[in-house]
């Protein structure tokens, strides 16, 4: 049995700091027929606090705690680009008390990082939460207004034109390389370790184009410092600045390039708990607070069955394979 009760301790703690206004934390049981969950559930985020999937998971846990009557506790287990925490969950007992929240980078573990973890066989896909398309963002004063104009601009410039992305082999890198291949445009790649660095260089005009999700650049777009030329597909959140898709701009084949977030269980989850958790997550995606948190971060809530999620994972795997073939990217093990 588990001796600690996170919700309880947090209420004690809140009382201590006298934050009494958070009355909404009281668990409300909806009376599920089966006895799951009968004790606190851990939601593992394999990254540090502050990343968008951490914020999403915390909000989701808040809603699930309320709907299912048991505390859902977020545990950050960062390390190795999400691999450490993911591996720990994949090996956990599949009893419905330990889940994992991951973005689509889970698919890249094998082909990009060279570590052994297949999301379809080593984990149990439960539900996709949300998606966010990639955005092609340029400084507002760049004299181009369409993808086509951008390509001409870059090809005719005497000096180098730079494209930025965050993370080697990550989704944004894949988008940038795919864009280069599909259009043949003359661009030099600059790799960043954090979105903030890339955004700074873009606003300052050192970069000419950045592939990014919309969340980080929304403020600068609203302030007229940056502009979106195109999205990879049209499923962008309401409130995001409108722009055409790549396909509409004549660049076909980038629809699938997007970020998604989803919930997994350990390997070999029983079907009934998988279905119950899937239903609970789909229901949580109707919660106004959950929707606000997602859409304000530029993500679109996506409902679906575990089978839908499996399909999304397979689609992503194809995109990663294509990237690997395209660039000859190899997981490199140094010393």
């Amino acid at each position: 049995m588990m001796k600690f009760d996170h919700k309880m301790s947090r209420r004690v703690f809140l009382a201590a700091t006298a934050l009494a206004s958070a009355a909404t934390l009281l668990p409300v049981s909806l009376g599920h027929a089966a006895d799951w969950p009968s004790r606190p559930v851990t939601m593992v985020v394999p990254f540090g606090p502050g990343a968008s999937n951490d914020i999403f998971t915390r909000q989701l846990s808040e809603v699930l705690s309320r709907d299912l009557g048991q505390p859902f506790v977020v545990e950050n287990k960062p390390g190795a680009g999400g691999f450490t925490g993911s591996l720990a969950v994949s090996q956990a007992t599949p009893d419905g008390y330990r889940f994992l929240e991951l973005p689509n980078s889970v698919v890249a573990f094998g082909p990009i990082m060279g570590v052994q973890l297949d999301p379809l066989t080593d984990l149990t896909p439960i539900a996709i939460l949300a998606t966010s398309p990639g955005a092609m963002v340029v400084p507002a004063d760049l004299p181009v207004n369409s993808v086509k104009e951008f390509i001409e601009y870059a090809n005719n410039r005497s000096e180098d034109t730079f494209v930025g992305y965050v993370g080697v082999g990550a989704t944004q890198h894949q988008m940038a390389e795919k864009f280069k291949t599909l259009t043949g445009v003359k661009l030099k790649s600059i790799n960043y370790q954090s979105a903030a660095e890339g955004q700074t260089d873009l606003v300052a005009g050192r970069l000419q184009v950045l592939f990014s999700t919309i969340a980080g650049v929304l403020g600068q777009i609203q302030a007229g410092k940056l502009k979106v030329l195109a999205y990879t597909n049209d499923s962008y959140a309401p409130g995001s600045p409108p722009a055409p898709t790549m396909a509409e701009q004549g660049v076909e084949g980038m629809e699938g390039s997007q970020v998604w977030w989803g919930v997994f269980g350990p390997k070999g989850m029983p079907q009934d708990i998988t279905d119950q958790m899937n239903a609970a997550i789909n229901k949580a995606l109707d919660d106004p607070a959950m929707v606000t948190v997602l859409t304000n971060a530029g993500a679109v809530p996506v409902k679906g069955s575990p089978a839908d999620f499996v399909k999304a994972i397979k689609d992503e795997a194809e995109i990663v394979q294509e990237f690997v073939k395209l660039t000859g990217f190899q997981p490199k093990q140094g010393g």
Binding site: P49, A51, S52, A196, L218, G219, Q220, Q222, K225
Partner: peptide, 28 residues
């Protein structure tokens, strides 16, 4: 002033604003 959170901690602050429907940026 720029809407660029330089570290995880500031990203959380930006997250707190976004939860409220405020986009951190020069317009705040």
């Amino acid at each position: 002033t720029l809407g660029i959170p330089p570290n995880a901690l500031m990203a959380l602050m930006a997250g707190a604003l976004m939860i409220q429907g405020i986009t951190p940026g020069p317009n705040v």
